[in-house]
Structures are given as structure tokens and as C-alpha cells.
Design a protein around this nucleic acid. Sequence first.
DNA 1: CAGTGGTCTAGACCACCAC
DNA 2: TGGTGGTCTAGACCACTGC
Lengths: 260, 260
Amino acid sequence: MSAIGPSKSQYAQVADLLRERIESGVYAPGSALPSEPVLADELGVSRPTVNLALRNLRTAGLVKVKRGSGTFVRKIPRIYRDASKRYNNAYRDKGIGPADVEVKDLGHKPHTDIEISKVQAAERVAKHLDIAEGSDVLRRRRKLHADDEPTQIADSYYPWALAKDTRLAEPDTGQGGSYARLHEINRGPVRFSEDIVVRLATDDESSELQLDGPLPVIDLAHTAYDESGVPIAVTFHTMPSHLWKLHYEWDDTSTEKGKK
Amino acid sequence: MSAIGPSKSQYAQVADLLRERIESGVYAPGSALPSEPVLADELGVSRPTVNLALRNLRTAGLVKVKRGSGTFVRKIPRIYRDASKRYNNAYRDKGIGPADVEVKDLGHKPHTDIEISKVQAAERVAKHLDIAEGSDVLRRRRKLHADDEPTQIADSYYPWALAKDTRLAEPDTGQGGSYARLHEINRGPVRFSEDIVVRLATDDESSELQLDGPLPVIDLAHTAYDESGVPIAVTFHTMPSHLWKLHYEWDDTSTEKGKK
DNA sequence: CAGTGGTCTAGACCACCAC
DNA sequence: TGGTGGTCTAGACCACTGC
């Protein structure tokens, strides 16, 4: 026993200690922490106690465990997602997907797996697209990576009637991305809405996003509307919450009227 | 031993089982779960295993523990926060704070603790207000409740020069809230930005928000700008993530130019 | 094969609550 | 005072990794 006082649970104290060491650089990003038995010895607690402390740091996204190999300090800083900017024309004209921009900005190598299919709209999809449940929709499901680490799942749906004559069904939607294609047929999005909820990852999500355990994820539903206010696309983003920082910016449109 | 198979850790299976029972109403909202020893017996696992499973449900916000008394199913549904609407004139004219609107909408009784002081701007505050660290600022720190349950901490800062001649330093800022007062001196906010990060609650936050343990919280920094683009107020919201659902809505302002 | 984390147990002590 | 959850331990077995 050594650096541990009373008044607080031991595992919490161990967690605090380890957090300090990580933040102060004693355990450098990417490096391995001492093994649980070693830490237990050093701190005079049992291994399950150390394990519980580490469970905390995992949930916080501070460390990542590689089974059979060790516990490592996370490197990747949060990815910055500017909702107002990522969908506008300026980006579209760059001919690059918004998600890739964000990852590249951080100096990481982006990489995307795509899966495209024609499916029947599930309840959630139908609700956001304001169509009947079971309607035909085009699904574009992407898993995005930074340096081969999964950063998010983005699951997009387009009404089939809209998508069937476009390049949306091809893996590469071309210059400017899918929204640019919709603009070409005069159904381009001009208004967006997003709903955000934080919840624990399901088991499937955990394994797909390579999370160690049921970590909190940001569940973000992004809906795009054309000039008539008709929803033309919805994307469900599942993002490990410790990887992201979200940003929004908007004008108080009621101010125009409100001002003298 | 009974309803538990192999292939998955026992505590995860116990967590799944309890989650099912909660969602299906076997354990009704507000009611207590069977005690840990009882569950351990029923499921043929040890108590620490049950405890670990419950730790999971707590993190998910599904249950709340009252020490010495029992583990209870949470009741309060998520509070809906519409960022685009809550700050606009329409609401201001109602003469009611946006936070209270949200809580009332759910049929709960709102309640706010306020603490007002003149302080020196910390780094984070200074950065958002674009002023020098250590400058005088007015601080309005509120803790908001729904039915006596804390729902968020909202910590607001205003440049002292702006606030000193207004009602901002009084607990009740009057009809339309603080932004209405700023409008009266022609420094009303017309543009907003928000930065969102999800992290684990600190110990202080945990106890203040009455969370059982270091649960994930939404850390939301809301900045308001006047017509000249000068930041006039920043509020840091700390919201238990399981209590909230956030909503944003905006136009693609670049579309106007982009269209032919 | 040795080392790592994942998990589990039986039993224990404690603080807190309600009666 | 008895029940509840919070925590802790010593020891154990397992699966996975890397040599």
C-alpha cells in the first residue's frame, strides 16, 4: 500500500491516479499501462479492484484494451464535426465527402467501407422520411475509419423513387457526394435537422466499432429537406462519444421580425 | 442456475435480462428491482456478478440506486431541447426561461437554484467570450430540476461591462430572460454557436446532479453573439446524457448563392 | 508457453435506510 | 435491527497474444 488514502473507494482512487498519470504523460499516448497484477502490487490493492478502475477509464475512452496484450493509452484526439458547414455547397464543390474532410483535418488516413442495398423502410426510417413503413428505400451504409480505427457508422436512406435514376446506388457518388446528385435533379437539400441522443452501444455496435465494452455513443439522426420541405434523405450516425466534438452555428431567424 | 446460457459473460447476460424485464414492464418505472442477493439466487450467479450487471444499467441511465434502500427503475423520459427555438424571440415574448419550457412540456414541475457572482474569467470562459483571462465577468450559475431531480447545471458568463447596468445580476432577470435584457441595450444576441462533447461526469458533478457514479454527461458550451459578431454571453451546460435529446435545425445558407 | 486482461466466486465488512 | 447496495479480497479459470 502506498499512494492511497481513505474516504473514497479504492477503485475510484486508482482510477484517479491512473487518469493523472495519463494526463501528465507518465503513461504516454499509445504506450501500454503496467499490467493489472503489477498495478495491484504497486498500489496495494487486489487485481479485481484495479480491473474495476480500468473499466472506468475505458468507459471514459482514455484507454483501450487489446486482449491478451495489454492496456494502452488512447491517441486519437476528438474529431471535430461542424454540422453547419459540412453539408453546404462550399464543401460539395471540393468534391469530397464531409466525413473524410474531418478526418483528414486531423492528419489521419480516412477509409470507408460501403454497403448499398434496396430495402424496405423500417419504422425509424419511415418516420424521418415521412413515408409509409415498408416503402422501398435505397440504403447506403458506411463504416468510416481514421487510420483503420472505426470512427462512426453512417447509415443513409433515400426514397427509392428519388434515388433510382441517380448515381446514389453506386459506391462512388462522384464529385460533391450524394447531395450534389440530388441538387442535379432539383431535389437538393436546403434545410437540415438533427436529433441527438447519447446511449450505450449495443453489442453489435460495440464489436463493429471495435469498442471494448458498451461505451456511450452519440446517436445522431440527420435529415435533409428539399425546397418544398419534403425529406429526401436521412442518415443515422453512430459515433463513439469519446471520439467526437460536435459544433453547431445558426442565426436567430426570428430576430429579423423581432427587430424594429 | 436457470435462464443463462454460455458464450457471453454472465454479467452481460444478467444485464440483458434485466434490461428486457425493464423494457417489457416486468419491473415497472419507479418500482424497485429485486435485491442483489435475490437476483443472484434466482439467476445462479454471485452477488458481485449481479452488481456488475447493475453497474451497467446505471451507466445507461436505466436504473437509479438509492443507497440502503434499493435499485429503482428510472421514470423521467428524455427532455427535448430544441436549440433553434429555445433562444428566439417567440419564446422570449412568452416571458419564460427556455429551460423551464422544456421541463413543463413534459408535465414536470421545474425548479431552479441560482447563484450569482462577479468573478474573473477562467480560461475557458475567456476563450469563448474572446476576452482576456481574468477579466471581470458576471456569473449566473443555475441548477435546474424537474420534480426535484437535477436535470442540468447551466453556468452562464457575461462581460461585466455589459452586465453591470442591467438586471442580469438579479436572480430574476424578468420578462423574456437575460437575452431580452441584452436586446434592450441593443446588444441582443442574433447568432449562436454550440460545442458539444460527451464525457464522464467529474465527482463534483456526480454528486451535484445526484448521479450514481461517473455517468456520461453532455458538456455543451453555448455562445451568443450580437449583431457585430461580438460574443456577449456563454453558458456551459452539464447535462446527464440519459436525460436529454437534442435537436437542431438550420438552412444551408450557402444554397442561396449556390442556386442559379 | 508465459503474460495479458476477462471474468467469476465465496465470503466479508461497511454505510445507509426503514422500521 | 435487518435489509440494501458499495466495496474489497484472494484465488481461480479462461481466452487471447506474442514470442
